[in-house]
């Protein structure tokens, strides 16, 4: 058996491959569902209904997708330039932290001014988290995977320290949580009685903006060139180091805004479980989207619907909810295989 590169890739294949990959991952996970004692079809029916079956379900799914679009976009931007930012989780918390400091009473402005300021400051906080790693990489060749990953733990421990100390909510009944942000800092809900908030619109806006930047601007041109072939970009006289720094700052900034969106739109205050690994899931989202800024929207929605649906499934059918994690992982593997099969043909001989 050997793989041969396809010279022409049929368009149908490009469309069908991801659908086939998702179908394959459902089939592969069926065994696991059956093993836990539930009827496979019933369980998947519950999953689908729980993710997309009602207005409430859709609201929950897209509310969950919102931070994933941000973190997925952050990962996609960085990875596209070959900068391996594994630290979106820490950048998210850094953004959330600065929002908590500024938004719980220190600033009190009209929402029309307050929200833009908070968006910018959370982005700055997230971006600063990546400044160190990118400078270390450029000047000393320090591996950014290690530095960004370790920074996650540092930030999380810092947040933990602050939530037990100066930022602890006196009305919080002793729980390690911060005071809620003031009303002017809250992101408005999109529908009455549903948790879906305008952070989603912000996420969509950033995806579209970054897509346009990538294909239309000089910066986007440089970023793609550096990502595809750094040596040739340097040879052609492009400012490779500057492009790397800018890329890192944009990536970190967008992950920081995820923290703002979660605090100001979803939870209302900073807690230690603000993010159930959104930063890491963002990497999966970016890979599923093949690092395309608009693809991130679709893949984040898919991953969110699996998570939300699996929660509903586990409640109703008694299937363990970790199956959601397995399904997301399996779908990523299937997607990688399908990408391979789009590019190559298998020859049995």
């Amino acid at each position: 058996m050997r793989l041969e590169p396809r010279t022409k890739v049929p368009f149908v294949l490009v469309i069908l491959a991801p659908i086939a990959a998702i179908a394959a991952s459902f089939v592969l996970c069926a065994g696991l569902v059956a093993w836990s004692g539930a009827s496979v079809l019933e369980a998947y029916g519950l999953l689908l209904k729980g993710a997309l079956g009602s207005g409430f379900a859709l609201s929950e799914t897209f509310a969950r997708a919102t931070p994933l679009i941000f973190t997925g976009l952050a990962a996609a931007i960085a990875f596209k330039s070959r900068f391996w930012n594994i630290g979106a989780e820490g950048q998210l918390y850094a953004g959330a932290l600065i929002i908590t400091v500024l938004g719980t009473g220190m600033l009190d402005l009209h929402p029309g001014l307050m929200i833009p300021i908070l968006v910018v400051t959370s982005a700055v906080a997230g971006a600063l988290m990546l400044l160190g790693p990118v400078l270390l990489k450029i000047h000393f060749g320090v591996d950014e995977v290690v530095t960004t990953l370790l920074l996650n733990f540092i930030v999380l421990l810092l947040v933990s320290l602050l939530l037990e100390g100066p930022l602890k909510d006196p009305m919080g009944l002793g729980w390690p949580q911060a005071e809620p942000v003031i009303e002017a800092a809250e992101l408005p809900r999109l529908f009455q009685g549903l948790r879906l908030h305008s952070g989603l619109l912000l996420a969509l806006l950033f995806s579209v903006i970054f897509w346009i930047v990538s294909i239309r601007t000089t910066l986007g041109y440089e970023m793609r060139a550096v990502g595809f072939n750094q040596k040739a970009a340097r040879f052609a006289g492009m400012p490779v180091k500057r492009v790397m720094i800018i890329t890192a700052l944009i990536s970190g900034g967008i992950a920081g805004i995820a923290g703002f969106s979660e605090v100001a739109g979803m939870k209302g205050n900073l807690t230690l479980d603000l993010s159930p690994g959104f930063g890491y899931t963002g990497i999966v989202v970016a890979m599923l989207a093949q690092l395309h800024p608009l693809g991130v929207i679709i893949s984040a929605s898919f991953v969110a619907s699996i998570f939300v649906g699996a929660d509903a499934m586990s409640r109703s059918a008694g299937v363990p909810s970790y199956i959601a994690d397995v399904m997301v992982s399996v779908s990523l593997l299937c997607m990688l295989v399908s990408v391979l099969l789009v590019r190559f043909r298998i020859r049995w001989s």
């Binding site: 041109y221 793609r224 060139a225 595809f228 072939n229 040596k231 040739a232 970009a233 040879f235």
Partner: peptide, 12 residues
């Protein structure tokens, strides 16, 4: 490796 960026177009 130096002359062109293979994944970008002729125009780029």
């Amino acid at each position: 490796s130096q002359g062109v960026i293979g994944d970008m177009t002729l125009a780029e």
